[in-house]
Structure formats: structure tokens, C-alpha cells
């Protein structure tokens, strides 16, 4: 039965990694601006865009 305890702890640790990733992204400011990043990716940066 001890194996259940071990697996429970291991699964908790794995989940904790994801929690850490979430906290990292929060601290990194990923959720601060919900407009700029989704739009930024749509800009194709060809250099010339001169109108006549």
C-alpha cells in the first residue's frame, strides 16, 4: 500500500511544477496585457510599406 503514498507524492510534485510555471508566468506579466500580444503576432514585418 505504500506505493499509493509514493505515487500520490510524485503526482503532487509534478502538479507543483505546473503551479510553479503558472506563478512564473504571472510574475512575468503574461496576464497583464491581454490585447497587445495576440495582435502583435499578426503583424508581418515586411520592411517596405510605403504608400504612394
Amino acid at each position: 500500500m505504500n506505493i499509493i503514498i509514493v505515487t500520490a507524492i510524485v503526482s503532487l510534485l509534478i502538479a507543483a511544477i505546473f503551479l510553479a510555471a503558472l506563478i512564473w508566468s504571472i510574475k512575468d506579466g503574461q496576464f497583464e496585457d491581454e490585447y497587445a500580444p495576440p495582435n502583435r503576432i499578426l503583424f508581418d514585418d515586411k520592411n517596405a510599406s510605403k504608400n504612394k
Binding site: 502538479a15 507543483a16 503551479l19 503558472l22 506563478i23 504571472i26 506579466g29 497583464e32
Partner: peptide, 17 residues
């Protein structure tokens, strides 16, 4: 004020987890 929001988001994540 972003700082304060961040702290709360982290607290919510940990509490939920």
C-alpha cells in the same frame, strides 16, 4: 498597481492548487 494584482493572482493559484 500591477504588483498588487500579481500578488493576489499568485495567492489564488496556490490556494486553488
Amino acid at each position: 498597481i500591477a504588483e498588487k494584482n500579481n500578488v493576489r493572482a499568485v495567492q489564488i493559484s496556490i490556494a486553488g492548487f
